[in-house]
């Protein structure tokens, strides 16, 4: 094979690769759009009036996740499934956002930490790599960390809205999350950087809980002395 032939062979490969990336980018744009819609919807829980409407907001968000499902289904058809990590960077960000949104919805509904299986189910994807398009563990953890900072905000706003019990529950939840993350041996990577922010969320919620308990506003005082 001559040098020229060799290079045109490689060039053929490279342009095929670029075509795939182009397709993926288009679908991911749609996904980002939907993710923003869900976020806007859920942001209204921070408003005083929004606290009563949490269940209905969650139901609406769940509806939007159906759109996400079809969009991800579309994304799956754009590339060979065993090359997930070759194009991972394209949807990594949006998948983390979606994980966060799913986790947030599940928290608002049941005040539990969403499991990886639940997220995968909400998004219509798999948990294990072997079965197809899956949720990478680091993306899941990153999504959970985004939710932690959202919850610290929610704690502040729920006090403003006159809901004094919620911060205590959030505090318990976040503390649990914190001790969970402490079990991990994180490398010096983006996930670790994000984890480093968790302590500020913990601190902020603790301050809120302190403010409430010093004024006698916290009724369930036993849960605040957890940690």
């Amino acid at each position: 094979m001559s040098v020229t032939e060799m290079f045109s062979h490689i060039q053929g490969f490279l342009s095929a690769d670029q075509d795939i990336r182009e397709e993926i980018r288009k679908v991911v744009q749609g996904l980002e759009q939907t993710a923003r819609e869900i976020l806007t919807l859920l942001q209204s829980v921070h408003q005083p009036s929004g606290f009563k409407e949490i269940p209905s907001k969650c139901a609406k968000a769940r509806d939007l996740f159906c759109t996400v499902k079809t969009q991800i289904g579309d994304l799956k058809t754009k590339f060979p499934v065993e090359q997930y990590y070759r194009f991972h960077e394209h949807w990594r960000f949006v998948l983390q956002r979606l994980t966060f949104l799913a986790a947030f919805v599940v928290y608002l509904e049941s005040e539990n930490l969403v499991t990886r299986e639940e997220v995968a189910q909400i998004l219509g994807i798999e948990v294990v790599r072997e079965k197809g398009f899956h949720l990478d563990i680091e993306d899941y953890l990153a999504g959970v960390l985004i939710m932690a900072s959202e919850l610290s905000r929610l704690a502040v706003n729920s006090v403003t809205a006159g809901d004094y019990n919620r911060p205590l529950r959030i505090s318990n939840f976040i503390n649990e999350l914190d001790s969970g993350f402490r079990l991990l041996n994180l490398k010096n990577d983006p996930l670790r950087k994000r984890y480093d922010g968790l302590k500020y969320d913990v601190k902020k919620i603790e301050e809120v809980v302190y403010d409430l308990s010093i004024r006698g506003l916290a009724k369930e005082s036993e849960s605040s002395g957890d940690k």
């Binding site: 930490l113 563990i137 649990e176 001790s179 969970g180 079990l183 991990l184």
Partner: peptide, 8 residues
């Protein structure tokens, strides 16, 4: 939660 993180 802790049990889940052990798996992670």
């Amino acid at each position: 939660v802790v049990a889940a993180f052990k798996v992670f």
